[in-house]
Structure formats: C-alpha cells, structure tokens
Amino acid sequence: MIGVAVAAGLVAAAIVLSRVGGLGLERDLALAAVRAAVQLAAVGALVALVFEHAGLAWVFVTAMLATATATSARRLRGIPRAAARAFAAIAAGAAVGLAPLLATGAFSTAPRELVPVAGILIGGAMAATSITGHRIRERVAEDIAGVETRLLLGVGVAEALAPAVRGAVTTALIPIIDQTKNVGLVTLPGTFVGLVLGGASPAEAARLQLTVLFALLAVELVAAVVAARLAVAGLRRPGERVVAAG
C-alpha cells in the first residue's frame, strides 16, 4: 500500500505542476489515474475469481479476443466487414503462438498460466492488426493516383497494393522487432519484471520472457500478414479495381 500511496502522491504532484505550468492536463491526468485504479481493482477481483475456475479462464480469453476485435475493427473502419476481418487476423496470429506453447506443455491451460499468456499474445496480434489495417487504408487514400497508375499499367490489385502492404506490415512489426532486439538493454519487459518481483529466479524469468517474445514475433507477423491480405480483399472491387475506404 505504501507504494500505491507514494505513486498517487506523484500523480498529485504532476497535477499541481500542470496547473502551475498552465498545461491544462489536470483533468486528463486525474481521470486517467482514477480510471486505472478502478479498472485494475476490478480486474484484480475478476482475475482472482478466474484463477479459481478453469472454465471461466476460457470465457475470459474469449472476452479478451472480443475486445481486441472491436478495438482493431475501429482501425479498419471503411473496409466492409471490418470486425470479421479483424477477428480473423487476431485469432490467426494468437493461435499460431498459443497452439504450440499449449500443445508442448510449455505453458499449461491452468488459468494462472493461460490467461496472462493468451492476453499478451492477443494484445500483440491486436496491435499488429490495427497498425497494418490503418496504414493500408491510409496509404491507399493518400496515394490512390499511384495505385490507379499501377492498375492502368496492367497489374492486378494485389500487385498494385504490394508497396502499401509492405510498408504497413513493416511499420506494424517495428515495435516488436525493436523490443526484441533491445530487451534488457533499454527496458525490462513486464513478464520479466513481474516474475522476478513475484519471487522467480532471474534465470527462470528470462527463460519465460524469451518464450513470450519469440512467440510474439511469429504472432504479430502472422496477424499483420493476414490483416493485410484481408484489408486488400476488402478494398478490391470486381474488375481489378480499388476503392479508397472513406
């Protein structure tokens, strides 16, 4: 509790500083702090419940998947059936990571292991799907003349959108690639910190962190590639034409 009190004091100090400096961020800071406290307290209670009942763990994972789908679908707005496309990309990516880890027993399906690992992988797949979908829409809208120029030169939609797809997938993977490259040098990621604070040995924590990071590389690549394909399919019209999503 002392830790929370000290951190709350820091938020209060930040609010005072914002006031004194005329930054106008007081409301946002206070609201963010209160929301975080309420949400984490609720999740804490919920997770305690979920850890007791194996069936609830899968319900919880399904809810995470649904929330991630809704979040990414907003980034794909303007593309027909955005939610179905977002779901397919996130589920495909998360499944690619989760299936082998569970099948080999690297992680068990016990709620205490399933929920956090599934959460991390679904979160990674969501981020990759959102960025990929958003960037492809943006690139096509910005460069519809370039896309149509390629179509007029006699290539199909997939080829005409290839530069947009490459750019979007690359952008989507920058965070996880950089995080993997710099792990331990710039930041100590959450899994590692949590395990060490929870009493695991640093070696054990490092092993699990590495497992999660490697899985995330595959998860995010698969999610980005599937999201890109589905976004292209959504922008394509019969007759090798493209619409810029509004």
Binding site: A145, T149, L151, L152, G154, G239, R241
Partner: peptide, 15 residues
C-alpha cells in the same frame, strides 16, 4: 481487366 489495360493505354491528366 489487366490484359485490357495493356491493350488500351490510359494516360491520366497529371501522370
């Protein structure tokens, strides 16, 4: 459509 666009070239106003 791809074969058509090779057979009939369209050059846009601001290429």
């Amino acid at each position: 459509p791809c074969a058509l666009r090779r057979r009939v070239g369209l050059v846009m106003q601001a290429p």
